[in-house]
Design a binder for these strands. Structure first.
Lengths: 213, 213
DNA sequence: ATAAATCATTTTGTATACAATTATCTGATA
DNA sequence: TATCAGATAATTGTATACAAAATGATTTAT
């Protein structure tokens, strides 16, 4: 695991919290590396919007409520488009992949609340897998580049939502509706359902965001 | 001008053509720098999609016809959204800025074809200015991050379009229609006109692309 | 003559040293 | 006490040296 990956993970997990100053030496010491690979990692992270740099020094980027809202708006737009395109282009294999992802997702949710035999991280991963499959099915290779920048909001901003059973089950139902529309090649419905799905997620995050800041 | 900016410019101007291999030493020699700043620049460029790296070495990224099409599709989606949001949020100053940009644009086109007293680069800049003003008026600060990645297609891919007087004048007319819709706060019309405007640009590029590859 | 193995060369990855710049502290003066 | 200048420290920017890895060439065995 290289410097870039490690620092990114630390930011996403809140270990390096928003607004924290990151000096090269500090990170070099933390990761037991020289400054050279750290600097490269920081340049990458900045291009991806995880850090912001002032005249001197780099800080972990802080997202305001308004930022979150705007990022979700764009994510809605693009993933809605992806769902619509997926409806058009979906191959047999795409449908199978989405179904599998969704079944695992449902299974994991059940496990989590019945036996506690899985983690929220795992559930998040499976949710992500469903969304990724839609992007893959859309056949537009460039969507992923942009979405990956949007999903990168620190996990803390999203996790509240994901500890609530009702919300998880609602989310699962949305997935099923979206999948149904894609199967039937109902482009408009797929887009609308995806819009609604992501807007709902956004609202949940915004509802709880004051607890964080 | 730092290493990153210089290399980026060289790629955009076709000086470092698609698929060309970029070794660190070559660039260090070319820019009269050591490898250290070069490596940082390359990491940034890769995050931005201007280069692609294999196991060993970095190449200037090559865009296929399909890539261009897909990137334009996304640009259409997002700039259409920007136009719609701009219609809603536009302040007095935004309208003034767009008008100014457009007037300069018209002036430059006239100058170019009547007296030859300006350059295509300058015309391109003014076109860009109009588009940037719309993004600014949209009030969504995150749009720019994504659009800037899309406009970065090597200039060669776009310039054919821009040497044709008819196309330039058509483009100017589109701008006027878009501006009118934003002024009247007609969100749907603004979006539709922007969609049409960018799709048209896309088609022009795709028409001429075989000449390049 | 072909394939595998070994060696040489190229290129990248990392550490370290030093230069350049910016921030911080200290004390003198108004 | 407040503020400004100069000195000092902290931090980033760049160059260079060497280690590690990958590629390419050459030899050797079958």
């Amino acid at each position: 695991m290289n410097a870039y990956t490690q620092i990114k993970k630390a930011i996403l997990h809140g270990e390096l919290p928003p607004k924290m100053r990151l000096t090269e030496e500090f990170l070099a010491d933390k990761l037991q590396l020289s400054r050279t690979p750290i600097r490269e990692a920081l340049k990458q992270l900045e291009s991806e919007g995880l850090t912001s740099s002032m005249k001197r020094g780099v800080r972990v980027r802080h997202y305001t409520k308004e930022d979150i809202k705007q990022i979700y708006d764009l994510r809605t737009l693009i993933e809605g488009y992806a769902a619509s395109q997926a409806s058009f282009h979906r191959k047999h294999q795409d449908l199978k992949d989405m179904e599998t992802a969704n079944e695992s997702y449902e299974q994991a949710i059940n496990d989590y609340f019945q036996t506690g035999q899985t983690t929220v991280e795992h559930i998040l991963e499976l949710n992500q897998r469903f969304h990724d499959n839609i992007i893959k099915a859309s056949q537009n290779k460039h969507i992923y580049t942009h979405i990956s920048k949007m999903v990168v909001l620190p996990l803390i901003f999203r996790s509240f939502y994901w500890f609530n059973e009702n919300q998880m089950r609602l989310s699962l139902e949305s997935h099923k509706i979206i999948l149904g529309a894609i199967r039937e090649q109902d482009m408009d419905r797929a887009r609308a359902a995806m819009h609604e799905h992501i807007y709902h997620g956004r609202d949940q995050v915004l509802l709880h965001i004051d607890d964080i800041e």
